[in-house]
Each structure stands twice: as structure tokens, then as C-alpha cells.
Amino acid sequence: MRPAVVAVPALLLLAGLLGACGVVSRPDAAAWDDQATLALTDAGSQVATARLALTSAAKERTWSPYTTVLVAEAEEAAAKAEEDLARVQVPPGRADDAAAVLDLLDRAAGLVGEARAHAVDGEYDDRSLLDDLDRLAGELQKAAG
């Protein structure tokens, strides 16, 4: 096989990969919607996990380190969902939608963080926190469609 036959496709592939790494693309509205849905679903899952972990601990069905690890991991994942979407370029004309979604995700990350603080302190049965988690999980699920 002639070297050029191998070299040309290899160089094109390399150029394509470098191009893909180096260019910040502007997603279309549909792609942004998909990413927003994914982030909202992820955050909803983390909020529901934190709530389930706290209620299980309140009923003395889990031990303290287990609950702490579970809620701390949920906090990390909720924050990541928000960060991942915040990094995506908002399509033209969608700034208000994006702000609303990011606000919801920010509330989710904050509330799961609060749940983690309660878990570390061993306060598992704060009724208002559990209600807030419940309400926010519903809002996130509704927003995700």
C-alpha cells in the first residue's frame, strides 16, 4: 500500500479530531433542549435520592456514614448537572428559558447541599427540608417533561 494512501486519511482524521476539540460549537435549540432535559432529569434524580436517603435514615434504616456518603454524592452530581449545562452556549432567543432552567438547577444543588449538611449533623427528620426536597423533585420532573 502506498504511504500516501494511509497518510491522507490519517491526517484527515487527525485534523477532524483536533477541529472537534478546538472549536466551541453553538448548539441549535433542539440540542440545547436535550441537554437541559438531561440536566433537569439528573438533578431531579439527585434531589429524590437525597430525600430517600434522609427519610431512610430518619426511620433508622441506614447508618450515618452510609447516609452521608449517599447525600454527598448526590450533592456532587447535582452540582455537576448545573455546571455541565451552564457551560453550553445558549441558543439565540432562549436566554429567559436558560435562566429559568439554570435557576432551578441552582436551587437543586443548593437544597441537596443543605440535605448533606443535615446528614453530616445527623438531623434526618427536618420536615420542612423534606417537603422542600419533595416539592423541588416534582418541579424538576415537570420541567424535564
Binding site: 432529569t41 435520592t49 430517600l52 436517603a53 452510609y66 449517599l70 454524592e73 423533585a137
Partner: peptide, 12 residues
């Protein structure tokens, strides 16, 4: 609507 991403969730 909980997705499993950690081993802790598997045991919950």
C-alpha cells in the same frame, strides 16, 4: 425517577 449512579444507591 431516580437514576442509579453510585454503589450507595444500589444498596438503598
Amino acid at each position: 425517577g431516580i437514576a442509579v449512579e453510585t454503589l450507595g444507591q444500589v444498596g438503598l
